[in-house]
Design a protein around this nucleic acid. Structure first.
Lengths: 348, 348
DNA sequence: TTGTACGCGTTATCAT
DNA sequence: ATGATAACGCGTACAA
């Protein structure tokens, strides 16, 4: 005799299984959850039946009674605002790995204006659709995040910081310091910098590292050696054109990211100068292009997958009440290629 | 007087609101769902209260009774298997746009071996965690997908095809044909090809288009003009080295994707030959690198975001029972750059 | 091993 | 015309 299927869409319910197996729903539930308080034979009979008909407990009903969803939400920066696709895909990939391994689902959202202004994240949390949030590349003026955290939602920022919110970030300041140090060791003394948006903490940290290095090495810290950029190639081009108007032309430029470095190289060439002979360039995130452009770009390694993995692990620990300790700070390596050239001669 | 909060995590429930407003739960429900069968004053009183305390109906409970989740699952190729990050991120971004706009949530999964072999997608569907699936870059031997579709789950493939499964794909055959046609118009007659993996339908279609063009233009179709590659640069390099051993060296190579084209350029140079003077190169997916390499790569535009958007729209239409018509086929444009050079002279 | 209350909303039915 | 009561969706957990 065939049991009538109660659920729509042809999906079986625990009632069907109970009826077919000739036991109660509770017994089926015990079998599903591998409880010790059930007879082994009964359990086998039930699990065999379950396998046969392809039954899966309705996760929605489970979530309802358990008051959790085993789901975390990843808020990605809008791809149109991200210069490097890798920033987007490597972050997500790293998070996906850790979350999947630990049995969590991933709900993905994009940090659009509507998402932020509509407090969608808070809504999702209140709706019980997710139990925690990872925000990739949050901006310093993203106030929805603090609200969310204040509402009791576990939040970890991936590669940015905000007051009162947990995070995992790379050590941008030290990395920038080392980049400048490298240029200094090559003999450069007039080192300019193109900084990024004021809303990106990583960029601010790099600029801080640059300034710190100038101090440390006693290099000239001039207003017209510090240009403003916005991460894209064009702004790097424009900023460099402006830097080239400085009375004493810089011999090296450290840009906050690689795309601006590419713009810088173009601007330098457009001015009839050579890279790295006349001006050395140091970029910022080792994008896929970096080794291919001419000259190959010196830059900072940016292991977004590692950062994302660490952040995801941290969020999960936080959600399960495990100790998390101090926020980890991921070390960034220098990637030295042709664009910063060899040691300078008697220049400086 | 303060109502006691029944739900955990400090979230209010419909009971709290009913109690605070001094009405029944059903009345609150009517207010939430903007029913016409409720007094406007009562509604306002309730909605004001809801706004004040920040109540959001538990979506899990709603999903349970509605037997739907307003969630679609996106299965992405493993990033380690994808040569271009853009393939991953643009697809996801396009899907995200359409899904968000129509009020759907996105559950993201990676097509790992465990995911496929464990029939995780089917499980998710049976669990009621999602109502439809988009598979990006499915392989021809992915049997889990047919199973899923057979179980009644709406599925749309993004940029691949499988028997009996709906899809949106780009017109790879025509695009490949046109690429070869372009080379032919430049005067090339000995045109070789590096194909991709046999499990990728798009790659198969491109190879088909290549062969079709050879026929159409009466060009030599030699076994040793057809090399096997696997989308990565190294395999492009190896395949090209092998092609260069042909008795009559080809004057052009059409590679299925760009990374293999980069490998091809390296191999050609390693053999002491020039691109495009000795051998022209035509690539395949206009990756970010393409315009930057030297020589800049001629290739096929691959608008993954468009394809993904169309696929997502198609899935949603299918899920809501709207007519979908024939699967759309996205046209691909040629992107002509230096790597295929100018018209050949008296060569042939 | 099973009956039953429960988790949180929705909706049909009934009372005003 | 409004609003309240109760059953329902599906699985879990505790008492019996």
């Amino acid at each position: 005799m065939t049991s009538k299927i109660t659920a729509k869409k042809g999906r079986h319910t625990i009632r069907d299984i109970a009826q077919m197996a000739g036991v109660s729903r509770s017994t089926v539930s015990l079998a599903i959850n591998d409880s010790p308080k059930i007879n082994a034979d009964t359990k086998k009979k039930i699990t065999d039946l379950i396998d046969k008909v392809g039954y899966r407990p309705n996760q929605t009903a489970r979530n309802l009674v358990r008051r959790s969803t085993e789901t975390i939400c990843v808020v990605l920066p809008q791809i149109s605002h991200v210069v490097s696709n890798a920033y987007f895909s490597e972050s997500l990939s790293g998070i996906l790995d850790v979350a999947t391994e630990q049995g969590y689902h991933l709900l993905v959202k994009e940090a659009s204006a509507e998402f932020k202004e509509g407090r969608q994240a808070l809504k999702l949390f209140r709706q019980g659709l997710m139990d925690g949030v990872l925000v990739v590349g949050a901006l310093t003026n993203d106030k929805y995040i603090s609200e969310l955290a204040a509402a009791g939602c576990p939040v970890v920022l991936v590669n940015s910081t905000l007051p009162g919110v947990d995070y995992v970030i790379s050590d941008n300041e030290t990395a920038a310091f080392k980049a400048v140090e490298h240029l200094h060791k090559l003999g450069h003394r007039r080192i300019a910098h193109i900084r990024g948006s004021e809303f990106v903490t990583g960029a601010l940290d790099r600029t801080a590292g640059y300034l710190k290095a100038l101090d440390a090495f006693g290099l000239p810290k001039l207003d017209n050696y510090l240009a403003q950029g916005y991460f894209d190639k064009q702004s790097g081009f424009d900023a460099t054109k402006w830097l080239l108007t400085a009375p004493e032309r810089p011999t090296a430029i450290f840009t906050t990211n690689d795309m601006m470095a590419l713009g810088a190289i173009e601007a330098i060439r457009a001015a009839g100068l050579r890279v790295p002979e006349d001006i050395a360039i140091f970029g910022g995130d080792n994008i896929q292009l970096a080794p291919y452009v001419s000259p190959a770009l010196s830059t900072l390694e940016q292991p977004m997958d590692q950062i994302a993995q660490a952040a995801c692990q941290r969020l999960l620990n936080r959600m399960t009440g495990e100790p998390v300790g101090k926020p980890p700070v991921i070390h960034l390596d220098l990637v030295i290629r042709e664009s910063c050239g060899a040691k300078l001669g008697a220049r400086g």
